[in-house]
Design a protein around this nucleic acid. Structure first.
Lengths: 237, 237
DNA sequence: CTTATTGTTTCGGTATGCCTAAAAATTATC
DNA sequence: GATAATTTTTAGGCATACCGAAACAATAAG
């Protein structure tokens, strides 16, 4: 059991492993991890061995990689850092949605816990970041909103956008330009023939407007159905 | 001529070389540089060779180290970063004087130019940091206040504290506890016999109070004499 | 069931930046 | 001006984290 401060590489590996299973539960493989991190497969093999030595992941050769309890704790603290920094950049320094990610990526490894907690206090301990992703609390508990991807909803469903996936910056810019924002009310109207685009009505602020959303766009928008049981699952520390 | 982004080590070396000559003009030697950076002499020799290769310093073996034009430019931009971050931490996140240095030390290497400039704008492009050190402008020009160390002043001199050296955190805490702040009016009354402590009257806010200041304290306080020619030298870009 | 194909790991090698110990140059002392 | 003391540089090593190429498993295809 190593107690040394993890390097920023280790923090990145653990965060990516965690993030991969956050909105779906396939465990991550070496190759995917390498893709996400932008490194060679061989680098991942090496690093995973190190993570295992430090008790952060479980891994048998040639099979998937999963986090241990310590691994999850470290990952959650990195996610908290990342999302608080993003929120701060948007709310206090006027960054746009699509600008925050890279800056947060660098800052999350550099700042102290003191910095994070003062920032959180200044922001009023927010529970969601600018994309609607849940911000884990300082004790490690996470409020996961009970939401579904918009492209998986049937016609007639109504609800609010509770999360916008930040994986594709270009998509974020499109949504910003169309003024499709977090918490907008949505109604799924149906689908164009032959599995075509999803037709939805979105009322963000003013009068509702209709959109034909490509699959990629619809799957990036997560909707909290108000008619469904309105709950939040909480993962304890 | 290398155009690659300097590593954070290189940024540190250049910043320390610059800082050493900021309030005095002895050029820095390998040993001193090693002391300031907390590394072995041999590490300095190696690194200085690299800095020379990149055109950031001039150095002949066994003699002092000086910055080139490029070196000064890089150093000034690092000093700008450092001091803006310190100011931000104090004004926006409620850090105390003696807490900011280490945090700024880490952040200055991590954040983007965008971050720095947004922060500067939010702070109203300040010209001094919380200790009174001048913050270089984005174009590299520096406003150096015409001040002297308090221990070098003769009895009868009056003025304001324009800078408090931040080299000794314990000293900063002492000054904070005694409420000796930046911009306080001071009058040098004299010296205790046999080169004893300096006796000064300091009026920060309320009624002036008298202090016996040890040499180390007095030399950390820089005074801008109001009776002397009140000017600021500006170093261009 | 045997051979491709794909995925994963191991094996040298590279770059950074630090170290200690030994060698070389400079400066100080006699 | 020769020797002693100090400063500085060189030489050989260590840790991190990456790479490409080759070896090795596991799965898919015939």
């Amino acid at each position: 059991m190593k107690t040394s401060t993890p390097s920023s590489s280790i923090e990145d590996y653990v965060k990516v492993i965690y993030s991969f299973t956050e909105w779906q539960d396939k465990p991550i493989t070496s190759t995917r991890l390498a893709q996400r991190l932008g490194v060679a497969n061989s680098s991942v093999s090496e690093m995973v061995r190190k993570l295992k030595d430090q008790g952060l992941v479980d891994h048998k050769p040639y099979s998937a990689i999963t986090l241990t309890g310590d691994g999850v704790r470290l990952a959650v603290s990195m996610v908290r850092r990342h999302r608080l920094i993003e929120t701060f950049l948007v709310q206090e320094l006027g960054y746009r949605w699509d600008e925050v990610h890279d800056e947060a990526e660098l800052l999350e490894h550099a700042v102290s816990d003191t910095f994070i907690e003062r920032m959180a206090a200044k922001l009023g301990n927010p529970l969601r970041d600018p994309h609607g992703d849940p911000i884990p609390a300082a004790d490690g508990s996470v409020q996961v909103p009970a939401a579904h991807r918009m492209n998986e909803l049937d016609a007639g469903h109504t609800g609010r956008i509770t999360r916008i996936s930040d994986e594709n910056p270009e998509l974020l810019r499109y949504l910003a330009a169309e003024e499709i924002d977090l918490d907008a009310e949505v109604e799924v109207l149906g689908r164009r023939p032959f599995g075509g685009p999803l037709v939805v009505r979105i009322g963000s602020g003013g009068t509702p407007r209709e959109f034909d959303l490509a699959e990629e766009v619809a799957s990036a928008l997560w909707v909290h159905s108000e008619d469904a049981h309105a709950g939040c699952s909480v993962t304890g520390p």
